[in-house]
Protein backbone atom coordinates (compact mmCIF):
# COMPACT_ATOMS: atom_id res chain seq x y z
CA UNK A 1 0.00 0.00 0.00
CA UNK A 2 2.78 2.42 0.79
CA UNK A 3 4.40 1.62 -2.54
CA UNK A 4 1.16 2.52 -4.26
CA UNK A 5 0.97 5.79 -2.40
CA UNK A 6 4.52 6.58 -3.44
CA UNK A 7 3.60 5.92 -7.05
CA UNK A 8 0.64 8.25 -6.76
CA UNK A 9 2.97 10.96 -5.52
CA UNK A 10 5.30 10.30 -8.44
CA UNK A 11 2.40 10.54 -10.87
CA UNK A 12 1.40 13.83 -9.28
CA UNK A 13 4.87 15.24 -9.69
CA UNK A 14 4.94 14.02 -13.29
CA UNK A 15 1.70 15.86 -13.95
CA UNK A 16 3.11 19.05 -12.44
CA UNK A 17 6.22 18.56 -14.52
CA UNK A 18 4.19 18.24 -17.67
CA UNK A 19 2.24 21.36 -16.80
CA UNK A 20 5.48 23.26 -16.28
CA UNK A 21 6.86 21.91 -19.54
CA UNK A 22 3.84 23.21 -21.40
CA UNK A 23 4.29 26.83 -20.24
CA UNK A 24 7.36 27.70 -22.25
CA UNK A 25 6.24 26.20 -25.57
CA UNK A 26 2.81 27.78 -25.08
CA UNK A 27 4.34 31.24 -24.79
CA UNK A 28 6.73 30.45 -27.64
CA UNK A 29 4.03 29.33 -30.03
CA UNK A 30 2.01 32.40 -29.16
CA UNK A 31 4.95 34.65 -30.02
CA UNK A 32 5.65 32.77 -33.25
CA UNK A 33 2.08 32.90 -34.51
CA UNK A 34 1.62 36.50 -33.45
CA UNK A 35 4.69 37.64 -35.30
CA UNK A 36 3.78 35.52 -38.31
CA UNK A 37 0.36 37.17 -38.45
CA UNK A 38 2.02 40.57 -38.26
CA UNK A 39 4.44 39.64 -41.01
CA UNK A 40 1.61 38.37 -43.20
CA UNK A 41 -0.37 41.54 -42.62
CA UNK A 42 2.59 43.70 -43.53
CA UNK A 43 3.56 41.72 -46.59
CA UNK A 44 0.66 39.66 -47.86
CA UNK A 45 2.66 38.65 -50.92
CA UNK A 46 5.13 36.81 -48.65
CA UNK A 47 2.33 34.99 -46.81
CA UNK A 48 3.16 31.57 -48.26
CA UNK A 49 6.77 31.68 -47.16
CA UNK A 50 5.87 33.09 -43.75
CA UNK A 51 3.30 30.36 -43.23
CA UNK A 52 5.78 27.60 -44.01
CA UNK A 53 8.34 29.10 -41.68
CA UNK A 54 5.69 29.57 -39.01
CA UNK A 55 4.73 25.90 -39.15
CA UNK A 56 8.38 24.95 -38.88
CA UNK A 57 8.83 27.18 -35.86
CA UNK A 58 5.68 25.85 -34.24
CA UNK A 59 6.79 22.28 -34.89
CA UNK A 60 10.16 22.84 -33.27
CA UNK A 61 8.70 24.64 -30.29
CA UNK A 62 5.84 22.24 -29.85
CA UNK A 63 8.29 19.35 -29.67
CA UNK A 64 9.31 20.50 -26.21
CA UNK A 65 5.78 20.35 -24.88
CA UNK A 66 5.25 16.98 -26.51
CA UNK A 67 8.40 15.57 -25.00
CA UNK A 68 7.03 16.63 -21.64
CA UNK A 69 3.78 14.89 -22.51
CA UNK A 70 5.61 11.69 -23.40
CA UNK A 71 7.79 11.81 -20.30
CA UNK A 72 4.62 11.88 -18.26
CA UNK A 73 3.89 8.38 -19.51
CA UNK A 74 7.44 7.28 -18.87
CA UNK A 75 7.38 7.69 -15.10
Amino acid sequence: MEELAAEVVVKGYALIGYGAAAIGPGVGIGIIVGNAVQAMARQPEAAGMVRTTMFLGIAFTEALALIGFVLFFLV
Partner: peptide
Protein backbone atom coordinates in the same frame (compact mmCIF):
# COMPACT_ATOMS: atom_id res chain seq x y z
CA UNK B 1 13.38 11.52 -31.95
CA UNK B 2 11.48 14.79 -32.11
CA UNK B 3 10.21 13.99 -35.58
CA UNK B 4 8.76 10.70 -34.38
CA UNK B 5 7.57 11.96 -31.02
CA UNK B 6 5.85 15.02 -32.48
CA UNK B 7 3.56 12.97 -34.66
CA UNK B 8 3.09 10.24 -32.09
CA UNK B 9 2.36 12.55 -29.16
CA UNK B 10 -0.04 14.72 -31.13
CA UNK B 11 -2.09 11.73 -32.16
CA UNK B 12 -1.95 10.10 -28.73
CA UNK B 13 -3.10 13.33 -27.13
Amino acid sequence: VSLAVRLFANLVA
